[in-house]
Design a binder for these strands. Structure first.
Lengths: 142, 142
DNA sequence: TATTGTTATACTCTATAACTATA
DNA sequence: TATAGTTATAGAGTATAACAATA
């Protein structure tokens, strides 16, 4: 086994890349990118959320949220209404809700398939380890 | 906890991104990018390896290896000599060996710090789970 | 003063296609 | 025919800087 394969950071990167390309392929059926789906989920979970808040939750910079939300609005999935003079509250349209639910279904299937080589207990453990590593390395970047 | 946080795939992506930006910051001290360091490690581990072989080992497309190797050659870290009429065997120069060792040191430190919130047993388990997931999802892409 | 939303911009990474030369 | 190496190019993703408007 090559030296580099022993780095957990390297395995993380390879597995993450695999997962994202796989998920991307699945979501392409809905003409959605992974980031777009994650934004839809966040808006669905928290209607009237602002673009900046979505960005903070998902680790996406404000500057990159603008074209993302514009794209989803153009597709008719997201609507906004003023919350105050400078903030826009985002919510899903009916079509946005439908596509979001379809995406959620695809993501669930992909997850089950992708991590299907692990037992349920191992999947829970992986999730737990990942979250702990993430917390250990989050001094609130962004 | 937000729904999306329960997806192992999502945690994978967030943790991997964190790890790569952190490692990138560390390697910037050597004016090296993460990919460049991984290529140096691969060449160090297997002198006289070809560009295509490095690409296959690291999941980098042939087309993207060309500018990578050219950059490392320009920096004086990598030298090539013909293996046959179409293949070039790559090896590290003395300077390349020095920078590669320095990078290895930084990577080791970064790994220790990044995964320092886990016990040694947990780190081994994370590595093992990641490798199993990767194997389960590798029908030799590329 | 800080925050929201936006525009412009640049860099990295990844991917495809097409080509030459060699095995 | 398949492989090695290269070039050109395009699309994502991410990052910084700067600005106007509002809190």
């Amino acid at each position: 086994m090559s030296e580099i394969e022993r780095y957990a950071g390297y395995q993380l990167r390879r597995v993450s890349l695999l997962a994202m390309t796989d998920l991307g392929r699945a979501l392409a059926k809905l003409d959605l990118r992974v980031v777009e789906a994650s934004v839809l989920f966040q808006i669905a979970a928290q209607p009237n959320i602002t673009s900046s808040e979505v960005g903070r939750a998902l680790g996406i910079k404000r500057a990159n949220m603008a074209p993302l939300v514009a794209g989803l609005s153009n597709k008719g999935y997201v609507q906004s209404k003023p919350r105050d003079g400078r903030s826009q509250g985002l919510s899903l349209t009916e079509e946005g809700l439908r596509i979001s639910d379809a995406a959620r279904q695809l993501v669930a299937e992909e997850e089950a398939r992708f991590f299907g080589g692990l037992t349920d207990a191992e999947q829970r453990q992986l999730l737990s380890l990942l979250k702990r590593v993430r917390e250990h390395n989050t001094e609130d970047n962004q």
